Amino acid sequence: MFVRIVKMSFNETAIEEFLKNFDANKNKIRAFKGCNFLELYRDKNNTNIFFTYSYWNSEDDLEAYRQSDLFKNVWSKTKPLFNASPEAWSVDKLESLK
């Protein structure tokens, strides 16, 4: 399993549109084959910055999602709202304490 973290920064006027699009698609993304976990975070100080945090069974599953019509639809509505280039990291989960 690995984790995907994506940092996105939006124009202030676009935040509501982003959240509406995320809300409309979050369950579909979470139900996509290989996705085991999905969360959305908002920076406390820079409230136009958001992060998605997701767990995937494999890099192939993430890549299948990134090539899917679902991703293309979500991304086509999200990308024009950015005020900076998004950043993404794929990381291996080494430890988790509860």
Rank of each mutant, 00 (worst) to 15 (best):
F51V: 08
E39L: 08
N57D: 14
L38V: 06
E12N: 14
L40F: 07
V91C: 09
E16C: 06
S85Q: 15
M1C: 08
E63R: 03
L94E: 10
L97H: 12
K79N: 12
E17W: 05
M8N: 03
N11L: 14
T78Y: 11
N57F: 01
F37C: 02
E17R: 11
Y41C: 03
I29W: 00
K33H: 09
L81P: 00
S90Q: 14
P80C: 04
V74H: 07
F18N: 01
F32E: 10
N46C: 11
R30Y: 05
L97C: 06
A14Q: 05
N36H: 13
E12Y: 14
T13M: 09
K79W: 09
A14H: 09
S68G: 13
L97W: 11
W56V: 01
N25Y: 13
P80I: 05
Y53R: 04
L19E: 08
C35D: 00
R30N: 10
N46W: 07
T13L: 08
Y65P: 02
F82A: 06
S96N: 10
N27Q: 11
F2I: 10
T78N: 11
Y55L: 04
S9T: 15
T52K: 00
F10Q: 00
K7V: 09
F2G: 00
R4F: 00
F32M: 09
L38A: 05
Y55W: 06
N48W: 05
K28A: 15
Q67P: 03
E16G: 03
